[in-house]
Amino acid sequence: MGFVVNLFSILVGLVALPVALVGLVPFFGIANYLALPIAVVGAAIGILSGHKTGRNFNIFVMVVAVVRLILGGGLL
């Protein structure tokens, strides 16, 4: 059961990652505001599984989005 939940968490992260990567392009940084909640949901799902892969992948996506927002002046 934990493997299926972890796999679903990874799939959610795979949805959030392209959105965050689009947000790296200048003038598209607002896409990171969409990537963050998706990655947070994926990390929460990853926490529910016994495995760490999905959670860690979604945390990586969150870090990419937050760093881009901080560098662009949109966060903090």
Rank of each mutant, 00 (worst) to 15 (best):
L14H: 01
V15R: 09
H51M: 11
G23N: 01
V61S: 07
A43K: 04
L34C: 10
V64C: 09
L75P: 01
I70K: 14
F8V: 13
F60H: 06
P37S: 00
V25N: 11
H51N: 11
V22S: 07
G23Y: 01
A39P: 05
V25R: 12
F28G: 06
L36D: 04
V5Q: 06
I47C: 13
L69W: 01
F57I: 07
L76C: 10
A43I: 02
V64W: 09
R68D: 13
A65D: 02
A39T: 09
I38S: 02
L11K: 04
V19E: 07
R68F: 09
F8N: 12
G2P: 05
V66A: 11
P37A: 00
H51C: 08
I30M: 11
V12A: 09
I30S: 14
F27H: 12
P18I: 09
L75K: 03
G74L: 15
A65V: 05
L76A: 14
A35C: 06
A39R: 09
A35M: 03
P26G: 00
V25P: 06
V64D: 08
G50F: 13
G42K: 02
N56K: 11
L21D: 01
F27R: 13
V64T: 12
L11Q: 03
S49N: 09
T53Y: 11
G42R: 01
N58K: 06
I70P: 08
V5K: 05
V5M: 04
R55W: 10
F28D: 07
L14T: 03
A16H: 05
L17W: 03
S9L: 00
V19N: 03
V40G: 11
V61L: 07
L75Q: 05
V40F: 10
I38V: 13
G54I: 00
F60G: 13
G73N: 07
L7W: 11
